[in-house]
Design a protein around this nucleic acid. Sequence first.
RNA 1: GCCCGGGUGGCGAAAUCGGCAGACGCAACGGACUUAAAAUCCGUUAUUCCGCAAGGAGUGUGUGGGUUCAAGUCCCACCCCGGGCACCA
Length: 816
Amino acid sequence: MPEKTYEHKEIEEKWSERWKNQPHLYKPLEDNSRPKFYSLEMLPYPSGSLHVGHIRNYAIGDALTRYKWMRGFNVLHPMGWDAFGLPAENAAIKNNRQPFDWTMSNIAEMKRQHQRMGFSYDWSRVFATCVPEYYRLNQWFFLKMLEKGLAYRRKALVNWCPECGTVLANEQVVDGCCWRHESTKVEQRALEQWFLRITQYADELLDGLTKLEGAWPDRVVAMQRNWIGRSEGTEVDFGLDGGPDKIRVFTTRVDTIYGATCVILAPQHPLVDKLIAGTLKPQVKAMIDNVARKDPDDLEKEGLFTGRYAINPYSGEKAPIWIGNFVLMGYGTGAIMAVPAHDERDFEFCKQYNIPIHPVVRPVDGELANADTSAAFTGYGIVENSGRFSGLPSAEARRVMTALAEDDSFGKGAITYRLKDWGISRQRYWGTPIPVIHCEKCGIVPVPEDQLPVVLPVNIQITGKGRSPLENVPEFINVNCPKCGGAARRESDTMDTFVDSSWYFYRYCDPQNDKAPFDSAKVAYWFPIDQYIGGVEHAILHLIYSRFWTRMMRDLGLITNDEPAARLFTQGMVIKDGAKMSKNRGNVVSADDMVEKYGADTGRTFGLFAVPPEKDMEWTDAGAEGAYRFLSRVFRFVTRNIDRLGAPAGEPSEADRKALRRLHQTIKKITEDFDNRWHFNTSIAAIMSLVNELYILEADLTTAALGEVLEKLVLMLEPFAPYVVEEMWELMGRTGPVMRQPWPAFDAELAREEAAEIPLQVNGRLRSRLVVPFGTAKEQLEKLALEDDRVKTFTSGKQVVKIIVVPDKLVNIVVK
RNA sequence: GCCCGGGUGGCGAAAUCGGCAGACGCAACGGACUUAAAAUCCGUUAUUCCGCAAGGAGUGUGUGGGUUCAAGUCCCACCCCGGGCACCA
């Protein structure tokens, strides 16, 4: 066969057509006889158009799963579709269509594009989260949580995005703005909202992170820790002077309480109204407005003296009660004791309002500061001027003083979290309806399980403005109470779509199940996910919610795993012209264009070759061309050598030995890359090196070596460039699919270099080299090194102080 | 301020356990092939100095110190870049 030119279009169209009839190349085996491997990319949202940024992400997971399949694993590598409520609804409004129609047509298009890229998901397991069946299951979970007290409704100050016209969870607020509308300030509104009690699992979610260390990226673990924000301290009641009320404060430094010179309430604190004279009311209101509107960075500390005093339960001293704009209602108890001598914020505040400063902690080997100190001492030390606690170290004082508060019932040890319960109410059309009914007589009544799913009405005007459009659909809203049969109203809130994504990956194990979310036995086989792959942008949204959901399902007895994913990998973004590739920025390279110009194989290869997958990569045409050249080089080499395989076997040549050594070294390298770290850039570089070497040795290779080289070269390339690999395999007269071939094993003997090349150093500088057989004895190396001519020129006339010999590695001669 | 990353040629990067810094690719330059171009193939390419040349000597992984026979890699201090959190009491 003469050398063939690499015609990517012809090849990819041909195989893409053939694979249509064999759509799931690594469909899991029914007998589960192999070791299992469950990999998962983030479930894609059908925006309608795949671009090269996506391609790299999917190529990472696809390469890994193809490798695992070839290594004999039973692989679950599914693909599903999420119809995020907001974009689906917005796009539907724009296109004047129902969200469901819009989504389904986009899913079809996305599936076409994914298949065209040669991604071999198990298409038999595809499902979407936006269908009534999935609603039913979300609603079923909701009712279970309602039963267990994990779902509840309360009036709450919520984040409201005026652009979306809906509520946002804390996790969805970025820099005070909506995560979807980066320039739209989030407002605070008081609304009746549904919450999931994620805080009940705060400790467990935090402790679980310890086990994920090393298996999840450090930064994700750190971000989640930060987000949960556990802090241990003490709650203490200050009595109100001249009244029965108590002000409960939270502090992590109860050991400094003798230095508390005032108590500061958040402006929203419930006691504020009672404490202040009427004249202060407008000022408090102004303070609240100001806090809501301004960036915390620009906010100057501001305080109002209420004219009232609180009594320190330890010292019995009176402390003035202030209202401060920097005290957060949403953290701790919404009230603090200010210890200006030992807290920087309190110090700043008290200086500003001339509130006294009483130092009560001295550094372990220092003096107690004066009252007119110029800065707060925030470290631990020895407690002083603190009645009978004086002389105790801070830590000890914290313990003893907390115990006293508990004994005398004016406080207790307490733990606070930054994490808040998860608000799931959304005032949108497109989402799972929350399955409850509001009855005047019976209150909140859950929709009976046999009436699920509550589905969205079809005839609806979607304006994208104001309240939920469901409010305007009488046949949806007006219902009879399931309990008393009287007239009642259906809940019009729909669920946050992060509910959908919290457990979709469990559904992959059993997507056709119409009785339950999934069969527990099937989930037990596959879970936890061996390898989850996604963007780092989900570190604190999706990845906390799904950890919570997993524990919730475990406590319902549905599953036995604590964590959804044993390992997490966060891949980097694709950058083009200095910015993240996105439609809004207009810098997308569409997958279809790329496939047309270079081919899917090239796109995948380049996406994996440019940088390690966890790093951001810059997409350049020149780089893609380089990958294309490489695949062409391989293709030409293989095609022009196929005929030579029929020649009679000759004596193994020197070239054979070299080529086989290089081949087995390459297999070893790539196998290790796949097993230990996914630096596919070095894997592909190793194959390139091999091919470069083969070009040099080509003419001198004999039949046997050539046969082995061609076969294994093609197999190794399978995870990166499946189309061209399939074509070469066929041209070689073999039957595919190549993915069903076993991964080539390397022979450690063949991979070994024939001789060791030992660098000779004098005083740590490379001076010469020595070629010796492996395993040459230390003494022999030492002798040879000292006899080396080049070495001699640097050692002559000097005294050899020491000789370091690392067998097979290096000799270093130290001279003086 | 706190917590995670990171800083290596003209560029993307490699060096996996303290042992030859710059693999592989891009770009650039030179050569072969060609009427020519494209494609392809073969070279050169961190940097300074010495040499006609073969070759040789020095410097070099953000900065300054340290440990070590040996440091991109370990330790200390600092600078810069990216990301996250943040009046969280």
